[in-house]
């Protein structure tokens, strides 16, 4: 952690926490909307092409790094502030405080830390699969990558069985462009025979697989609840930190914060719930 970050004035630090936090709020809305594609009744075509775009576009790669940096800075700065604040009352009061205050603020460090823990589990389920750190989930590959141009190319029996089985199980997308729902083991076998084929994580089927297990669904609901607690406070708090508080609009900001929190949390919660009950 760099010394300059610690030395910034307390208000600048808080401003940056709010700035990065706001960026995360925008990201969260975007992420939630994207997830809703999973619920489209098209066998996952729309969501898969979205994932393909996100997985291959160069600008998205840059945005991903920016997002990761934003997370780290938001966390670093808020933890620095929290540590510095803790030292400012070396002798504590003996009687518990009876001052009426906003609870969300006092809990922010706890809801934030819980959020981080949940996030790591979430990364384990999805993002780390993409980074190929975790070997699990489902994969997809373009069918055109299987055209054998060189007749002398050897295709092992195992690979043939996998492809045959996949066709039989209708793992080919409706438009015929994708072979999907391949397990990690299947992917390894196919990759050996078709080294040029570009395998991508099949998040649509990964999500369906994960969300068919009730305790994973429950964990995700808890996750969204924790997110909700954090952003319910964060939304309003960020406005105040930017100096945007006016007696005329503070109620409006509060209402917007509540609406935003419910929309994002319910939007996120819809996916595991609908997949569990209807897919």
């Amino acid at each position: 952690m760099n010394n300059k970050l610690i030395k910034l004035s307390s208000i600048t630090k808080k401003l940056l926490v709010a700035l990065f936090g706001t960026f995360l709020l925008v990201f969260l809305l975007f992420h939630m909307c994207a997830n809703l594609f999973i619920l489209a009744d098209d066998g996952g075509d729309a969501y898969s092409s979205f994932c393909h775009f996100m997985g291959t576009n160069a600008l998205v790669k840059v945005a991903e790094v920016v997002l990761l940096g934003t997370f780290l800075l938001h966390i670093c700065l808020s933890v620095i502030l929290w540590c510095q604040n803790r030292g400012n009352r070396p002798v504590r009061y003996q009687r518990p405080s009876r001052t009426k205050t906003a609870k969300g603020s006092k809990l922010a460090i706890i809801t934030g830390s819980l959020l981080l823990v949940c996030l790591l589990f979430h990364f384990y389920d999805f993002y780390f699969v993409k980074l190929n750190v975790v070997k699990g989930g489902n994969y997809m590959v373009k069918t055109e990558d299987f055209v054998i141009s060189d007749p002398s190319q050897e295709v092992s029996e195992e690979a043939q069985i996998i492809v045959m089985q996949a066709i039989q199980d209708q793992k080919i997308s409706k438009d015929g462009r994708w072979l999907r729902q391949l397990s990690h083991a299947d992917k390894e076998v196919l990759q050996e025979c078709f080294p040029d084929a570009a395998f991508e994580p099949d998040f649509y089927n990964t999500a369906r697989e994960k969300f068919s297990v009730w305790h994973i669904v429950l964990c995700y609901l808890v996750f969204f609840f924790v997110v909700g607690l954090h952003i319910r406070h964060g939304f309003e708090s960020a406005f105040q930190s930017f100096g945007l508080n006016h007696y005329k609009y503070s109620r409006l900001i509060e209402v917007l914060g509540i609406v935003y929190t419910w929309v994002v949390c319910l939007g996120f919660a819809m996916v595991p719930l609908c997949v569990f009950f209807f897919k």
Binding site: S97, T99, S105
Partner: peptide, 8 residues
């Protein structure tokens, strides 16, 4: 300390 918008 710094402000965490607790408003105590």
């Amino acid at each position: 300390g710094s402000c965490t918008n607790t408003f105590a």
